[in-house]
């Protein structure tokens, strides 16, 4: 499926939302308020305490906005299809997806693209830009490329996690708990993970590699300490996300095939 087709789907979704323009714009504001509050809490905390584990406010802002931005980019394509998958299968709406001339995963993610993540992207994009300017990083071409690839990699990582849980929901019922569990795991990377115990730091770099979403790339760019994790491992950030996304894609295919074998 080509990129123009993906964009065609996205344009239709936007047009669809614009049918209810007022509700959409209000929704964007409401979500900015919702996420803005979490930023404000962090800001207020750092007004009082100066730093968390050696990270000051602009650094924390970079860390947190990198997480929310990549989440929004990944979730815009995967959140709605994956959380709705169980329902789609039950209602039989999943079947037509299987007889399209592209892979079910691409059809599903393109078709259920969610424009609503615009709010997250606007707010977090702005805060990311602000923090990058504040931090007076010595930018080199390499760093720019690294940050860009890290954002894409982070988006892939978030999308991969949602896709993995979505695949599981094709096989077991009530997978919604897993989605909620995923969100509480994400809380770890709201902060520099060097404040947690060594076991958790290792867990977040290996089995649940959330550290590659924001902590490791940010630490590398800012030249920060990374706890028990060797900082150089951050160099593989751009490939971790795509590899996981590929695994998630394969697992989705596997579960789709299983669904086809077993029947709804």
């Amino acid at each position: 499926m080509g990129i123009t087709l993906f964009l065609h789907y996205a344009r239709l979704r936007l047009k669809e939302r614009m049918e209810y323009r007022a509700a959409f714009i209000l929704g964007v504001f409401a979500q900015i308020l919702g996420y803005g509050a979490t930023y404000l809490v962090l800001w207020l905390t750092l007004q009082k305490f100066d730093n968390i584990g050696g990270w000051n406010w602009p650094e924390i802002a970079l860390l947190y906005s990198l997480n929310v931005l990549t989440y929004a980019l990944g979730a815009a394509y995967t959140y709605t299809p994956m959380t709705d998958l169980e329902k789609l299968v039950q209602q039989g709406t999943f079947d037509p997806i299987l007889i399209r001339p592209h892979s079910p995963f691409l059809t599903l993610t393109a078709q259920m693209f969610n424009v609503g993540y615009l709010a997250h992207i606007l707010l977090s994009g702005a805060i990311l830009a602000w923090s990058v300017l504040q931090l007076q990083i010595e930018w080199t071409l390499l760093k720019v490329i690294f940050l860009t690839l890290s954002v894409i990699g982070g988006a892939c990582l978030h999308a991969a996690l949602l896709t993995l849980i979505g695949s599981i929901s094709l096989i077991i019922v009530r997978a919604d708990v897993l989605f909620r569990f995923n969100y509480s795991m994400q809380d770890f990377i709201s902060y520099p993970i060097s404040i947690f115990g060594p076991a958790i730091q290792i867990l977040l770099t290996t089995i649940v590699p959330l550290a590659f979403i924001n902590f490791l790339p940010a630490a590398l760019i800012l030249g920060k300490g990374t706890g028990v994790i060797p900082r150089d491992i951050a160099f593989i950030t751009p490939v971790v996300g795509p590899i996981l996304m590929w695994l998630a894609y394969r697992s989705f295919q596997f579960c789709t095939n299983r669904y086809q074998g077993a029947g709804g």
Binding site: K15, E16, E19, Q91, G92, D95, P96
Partner: peptide
């Protein structure tokens, strides 16, 4: 599929 629309509802 008579029961399931493949058209975009709001467009």
């Amino acid at each position: 599929f008579g029961q399931r629309s493949q058209l975009w509802w709001d467009l």
